[in-house]
Design a protein around this nucleic acid. Structure first.
Lengths: 225, 225
DNA sequence: TCTAGAATATGAAGATTTTAATTGTTGAAG
DNA sequence: CTTCAACAATTAAAATCTTCATATTCTAGA
């Protein structure tokens, strides 16, 4: 998933970039109109985060350029302006979403993810970890090239772990992520043990090491060794 | 669900109010600091939508008043300012969420709903339609006072219909609302027929009329007659 | 090191959800 | 007024998810 971030405030540009890199996106930066235009014509991006208030040109023109050269690229407009007109103009011209400064990075992240979902960019993309490969477009996965028969919950569990590799995930966060509103928190979470067991069993059967490590009293971690 | 809207821009105040009334919230308005303070002390609200930039007093002080008199009230701060400081101050002082002008009414609505979910305000609240009563706090429902044994999907289905009574809901929107990411759109939606049938059967068994009307080729409508 | 209690794992039963096949219904076109 | 095809309902079976009872593992503290 390749993202171009167009933002003239250097500090904010760096903040966003390092945050999104940490979320496992491939990021490139552009801090001027011409830099952005150049990169947009030369390379293909899945998503462009576009500040429309640039000092040396209008972001709206960049939006037109994007839609002309690669109509499948998703555009998330960032603006400090309070004008509703900007918002509407942007959305009319084909932007996919709009976020007003200041914003929390978490919100930016969630908008990017909802954009990915809506547009099904996932089509071109795979998520990998050693011998395991996940294909979001078809919601399937393979181990050493052999397909794993995963149920919906197991698939979601695997994706959640693989996209948060090397991080300890608590049962609470797993429950929140996979079940959301449907689950009353502070319940027993017993079912997670079951799903973990089933997922481990299926991955093991196809020859993957047990990456799903139990961190006693803390949660689980998906990692090597 | 009782909501107080504190906003000095009269036009916006009216817009928000009529929108939220249409979403079946009980709304009251306050356009000045003193009006708001008066109402906050005299009545109990589940949620306060609070513009912190009032001409005759600081919204931050109102926030303190709210937290002092009724700590369980949820507060959604509205601000035109771009300052991150305001946001943090507000959240530190006990606000539950923050939205920057300008915003779409749909976004306001979704934030209110997520606030309701998080705080479990639903505890005090019921949703009713003739002989049917839904208790969000326990995720249960009754018909003529007799409990209906509903599964999770059936419960969600009933809530979605009853909170959108008299509106035609397409199979697509039902699928999106109940299954969200977990479902690939443009699928068959066959399972909705099954769930509809099961829900109808259970409601009928307890003596409720068939409110779940089929709108051939369009979807379903939950309504009288 | 040993032990008790908490945390996690496992397997099978029970409940729910989804699929699939069949039957019934609707409304537009002839 | 028919016919036909799309839409919807119904039912049973299959798959999945959750619960429950039991077993195992882990860790802090004796």
């Amino acid at each position: 998933m390749k993202i171009l971030i167009v933002e003239d405030e250097i500090e904010l540009l760096e903040t966003i970039t390092s945050y999104l890199k940490n979320e496992d996106f491939m990021c490139e930066k552009a801090s001027t109109f011409f830099d952005a235009e150049d990169k947009l014509i030369s390379f293909k991006y899945d998503i462009v985060i576009l500040d429309i208030t640039l000092p040396d040109g209008s972001g709206i023109d960049l939006l037109k350029t994007i839609k002309k050269h690669s109509p499948n690229t998703g555009v998330l407009i960032v603006s400090a302006k309070n004008s509703l007109d900007d918002k509407l103009t942007g959305l009319d011209l084909g932007a996919d979403d709009y976020i007003t400064k200041p914003f929390h990075l978490a919100e930016l992240n969630s908008r990017i993810n909802s954009l990915i979902r809506r547009r099904k960019f996932a089509g071109d993309d795979t998520i990998e970890f050693n011998e395991i490969t996940v294909f979001p477009s078809s919601k399937t996965a393979t181990v050493n090239g052999k397909p794993v028969e995963l149920t919906k919950k197991e698939y979601n569990l695997l994706v959640y772990f693989i996209t948060n590799k090397n991080k300890v995930l608590t049962k609470e966060s797993i429950a929140e992520h996979l079940w959301g509103d449907d689950i009353e928190m502070a319940d027993s979470y017993d079912f997670i043990y079951t799903h973990m067991g089933n997922l481990r069993k299926k991955l093991k059967k196809l020859g993957a090491p047990n990456y799903l490590q139990t961190m006693y009293g803390l949660g689980y971690k998906f990692a090597d060794k």
